[in-house]
Design a protein around this nucleic acid. Structure first.
Length: 437
DNA sequence: TCTGGGGTCCTAGGACCC
DNA sequence: TCTGGGGTCCTAGGACCC
């Protein structure tokens, strides 16, 4: 099939009613830190992953220094020092709060579907197309003015193209509209490496390259059969989206399919008691998140592993279905312990552990079942206990009260956070002070 | 010496059934 | 003695996203 035929085929499928705008905050974590440290404006800033492991965000100046995303901090420590780079441990309470504010602003202008902490898709009626540019300008200006965060806006008929439009916007003046009908559409796609396409990762881009598919235009021109055979149905959806045909649904439901709580340790652990403390603590944190979101889990999985950089990396997981969907820590802790006992091996240096809840359901969808009716009084007591526990922790701070199995605050396995900014936007004492002269 | 965490989706392969 | 094949369900693992 030649390109002209392909284009015609997709033209028929075009959804005439909708456009997508992708709003993406620039250098989000680094920009959040900068809000509270105006002295760092236009300076290189990096934010580290949990445990102060890798670089997960960089300010524009840090990017210009050539600091790569995902680089382990210890490898470039002296470089960071030499160039006076401001280093922060991640402060998710801060980023989450700023994110909520940004999402509210977007939602007031047009209905928004948050996609990640720093991105949201907005559905625009195509009848608004003549005003797209105005809407994009308003989004950018208001977010900048009300939060201090700079964002980019990409607009196109499919989410994949909106992502590419955003990619171009970041290099232009912050706004770009990508329309398959525009004359230079193919020329624009020819400039974008295949790796920049949403859904094409490292492995797939290598595979594509060995088959001479190097740019977004090459991908768009490939045959459906070849793409589906080599990149599965997900790749096929991407192909159609590149032609402007929306086929990727994003799941915005409030009920996730799974919920994970896991951490790398500050030090290696061999001792069962310490490992159990960590797993119990993750179970308690996960259960608290379930209760906060009014969810129940049908089962859980515990995983532990030794270093993946060592020669004999050892990974273990163990699953258990709960007797009925639940969210109370008290019932979960003995289950987690039993799962861990079945996997733990002496003399292994464990570096990471975690738990995952699956089969998640909204609490209101569950009727009292046979099991819980048998112990109604006990169940009510547990519910009261969990409610009291959450209330105390909400009022007096995280970990104000907890289960003995979770261990003490200062145990060695807790993660390193040596560069954490002290800012909590909900605490008035943290607000920057403006001085008028 | 030191390399994140929380998600989703898809596929292959094994177990099981008839 | 000779011992099939197709469907379904589950799970582990890979790839991808931010």
């Amino acid at each position: 099939m030649n390109t002209a035929e392909t284009d015609n085929k997709y033209e028929k499928l075009l959804n005439p009613d909708e456009l997508w705008a992708l709003v993406d905050c620039n250098n989000f974590y680094a920009s959040c830190e900068e809000l509270f440290r105006p002295d760092l404006k236009d300076k290189p800033i990096v934010v580290l992953s949990n445990n102060d492991g890798c670089i997960v965000a960089r300010s524009q100046k840090a990017k210009e220094l050539g600091i790569p995303m995902g680089e382990p901090e210890f490898k470039i420590r002296s470089f960071l020092k030499l160039h006076n780079v401001a280093v922060f441990s991640s402060n998710y309470a801060l980023y989450g709060d700023i994110s909520t504010r940004v999402m509210h602003i977007i939602d007031e202008i047009c209905p928004c579907e948050p996609y990640s902490i720093d991105e949201a898709f907005c559905r625009l009626k195509k009848s608004l197309a003549p005003n797209c540019l105005e809407i994009a300008k308003l989004l950018r200006e208001r977010i900048q003015k009300w939060t201090g965060i700079t964002c980019s806006v990409g607009i196109a008929p499919s989410k994949t193209l909106a992502k590419l439009a955003n990619h171009i916007a970041k290099k232009e003046n912050g706004i770009f509209i990508l329309d398959p009908a525009q004359e230079n559409f193919n020329e624009l796609l020819k400039k974008i490496p295949v790796r920049e396409i949403w859904g094409v990762g490292k492995k797939q881009s290598e595979k594509l390259r060995t088959n001479s598919i190097r740019t977004a235009y090459d991908y768009k021109s490939a045959s459906e059969e070849w793409i589906q055979k080599n990149l599965t149905v997900t790749g096929l959806k991407t192909l159609r989206e590149l032609h402007g045909v929306p086929c990727i649904e994003t799941d915005f439901s409030d009920t996730p399919k799974s919920l994970v709580c896991s951490r790398s340790f500050g030090v290696r652990i061999q001792n069962f008691a310490e490992l159990l403390e960590a797993v119990s603590s993750f179970t308690a944190q996960g259960a608290e998140r379930l209760r906060r979101k009014n969810l129940l889990a049908s089962g859980m999985c515990v995983h532990i592993r030794t270093s993946s950089h060592a020669q004999n990396c050892c990974k273990n997981t163990a699953n258990a279905l709960f007797p009925y969907p639940l969210c109370d820590t008290k019932t979960m802790l003995p289950i987690a312990k039993k799962l861990l006992e079945g996997m733990y091996r002496k003399n292994h240096a464990y570096v990471k552990a975690g738990i995952m809840f699956y089969g998640i359901l909204p609490a209101r969808s569950i009727q009292k079942n046979v099991f819980s009716l048998l112990n109604e009084q006990e169940e009510q007591n547990t519910e009261k206990l969990m409610h009291a526990l959450d209330a105390i922790n909400k009022r007096h701070g995280k970990h104000a009260i907890k289960f003995g199995a979770e261990g003490l605050e200062n145990t060695a396995w807790r993660m390193k956070q040596e560069h954490k900014s002290p800012y909590n936007p909900r605490d008035i004492r943290n607000l920057p002070i403006a001085k008028l002269s």
